[in-house]
């Protein structure tokens, strides 16, 4: 008893978990919600959505979110703004271009992903500088 405890920290663990979750998403394993974005169906895991988005947190945290397995986002983001955010949630990489940044910004605002909103503003700002 009282032996000194040693911790082995696997520093890649969080990115390896996320990479496996993305593989599960791509193969439709344990995905529990279909998002209808601009009419396009996107499968995802509620747990990942709720962890990454304040909007989904407010929807799925309550009992009301339990039975929801198809969610349309009327008046919500268009697919070309939403899809890069879903990929970001599962990869930590956000693809931006001058053409897509406004749509991604609008979608991130809608999804209450404030840190991504700020990054989009920085990107748009920088793309205007000479």
């Amino acid at each position: 008893e009282g032996a000194l405890g040693y911790v082995r920290e696997f520093t890649r663990h969080s990115s390896d978990v996320l990479s496996n979750l993305n593989e599960l998403r791509l193969r439709g394993i344990l995905t529990d919600v279909t998002l209808l974005v601009g009419g396009q169906p996107l499968r995802a895991h509620k747990a990942v959505l709720i962890a990454c988005s304040g909007f989904f947190y407010s929807i799925f945290r309550g009992r009301a979110g339990v039975g929801v397995d198809v969610l349309s986002l009327p008046g919500g983001p268009e697919a070309r703004g939403f899809a890069p955010l879903l990929d970001f949630m599962y990869t930590s990489r956000l693809r931006l271009s001058p053409a897509t940044a406004p749509a991604v910004l609008a979608a991130a605002t809608y999804l209450q992903m404030d840190h991504v909103v700020q990054a989009c503003h920085r990107f748009i700002q920088a793309s205007y500088e000479p």
Binding site: Y57, R93, Q112, M113, D114, H115, V116
Partner: peptide
């Protein structure tokens, strides 16, 4: 990746923090 011009590293927080149970 096709067509990626540059990758910029963002060191700050990326997503919201789920409040700890009060």
């Amino acid at each position: 990746h096709e067509g990626v011009v540059a990758t910029v590293k963002e060191a700050g927080r990326s997503i919201h923090e789920i409040p700890r149970e009060e």
